[in-house]
């Protein structure tokens, strides 16, 4: 199987969007372009409102990704778990697709007797270890998220620690929303490690609106731009894993 790149958007938020397009639609847009959208909802003390919860689950579902709601304290463990889980899920989709080509169009993993599935899983494991991964991190800095930013920063360091233990390469970039001058603001361009976040985080200001939908759209556009500029450089050899449902 050829080596490819997995592309993810990781959205970290604590509530409901209140500005611009429907974020669920934007997540579906991302998925159409082979980008998985994962969402982590950060809780304050006790509860999150029903609408917020529905939106978080909706975005992840439309974006073919994974969602998880956690208390700020458990963020580190969750961020890396969600990212990994989404990776496996996508890769399994890819492997399932290849299986269908071998076994016929209706076949899926569950049609194989359990004894035979092990090898498939080993392929998924192997891919998960070696595949290149790009994660665009999208952080909600509106209102109440402000106090959680130090925890978010730690969780992101932890994420790069986990992912950089893999054999495959990683690229991260970080956006916050709302931005100083628009819906989003890029605070870190593609980089293999997140160390440089330290200097960025303290300077972040928080705004009132929560334009989750527009932020997602701009994140997808940023990915698109990268792909295009790469195409220009290396004549479109880069292959991406397309998202496929399980």
């Amino acid at each position: 199987m050829r080596k490819g790149t997995l592309r993810q958007i990781l959205l970290i938020t604590d509530g409901c969007s209140n500005h611009g397009e429907d974020p669920i639609a934007m997540a579906a847009l991302a998925k159409e372009q082979g980008i998985t959208v994962n969402v982590i909802g950060v809780l304050d003390q006790d509860t999150i409102d029903e609408n917020g919860l529905r939106e978080i689950e909706g975005i992840a579902m439309a974006g073919g990704g994974v969602s998880q709601v956690v208390y700020a304290k458990q963020l580190s463990q969750t961020v890396q778990m969600v990212t990994r889980k989404a990776m496996t899920q996508t890769l399994q989709g890819v492997v399932n697709k290849e299986l269908k080509q071998i076994l016929g169009s209706n076949a899926s993993l569950e049609d194989l007797p359990p004894e035979k599935r092990g090898e498939v899983m080993e392929v998924v494991d192997e891919l998960g270890e070696t595949v290149e991964l790009e994660v665009l991190i999208l952080i909600d800095t509106s209102g109440s998220m402000k106090t959680k930013l130090p925890t978010v920063k730690e969780a992101l360091f932890d994420l790069s620690l986990s992912l950089n233990a893999r054999i495959g390469d990683n690229q991260f970039s970080v956006f916050v929303f709302p931005g100083k001058h628009g819906n989003t603001e890029k605070v870190l361009d593609w980089t293999p490690n997140l160390e440089s976040l330290s200097s960025v985080f303290p300077k972040l200001t928080s705004g009132g609106l929560t334009p989750t939908g527009p932020a997602l759209r701009e994140a997808v556009a940023f990915y698109f731009e990268k792909k295009r500029s790469l195409r220009g450089l290396i004549s479109g050899d880069e292959s991406y894993f397309e998202e496929s449902s399980m």
Partner: peptide, 10 residues
């Protein structure tokens, strides 16, 4: 999760 079961079984 099939994945969980499979990798643990492996």
């Amino acid at each position: 999760s099939n994945t969980t079961i499979l990798s643990e079984v492996n």
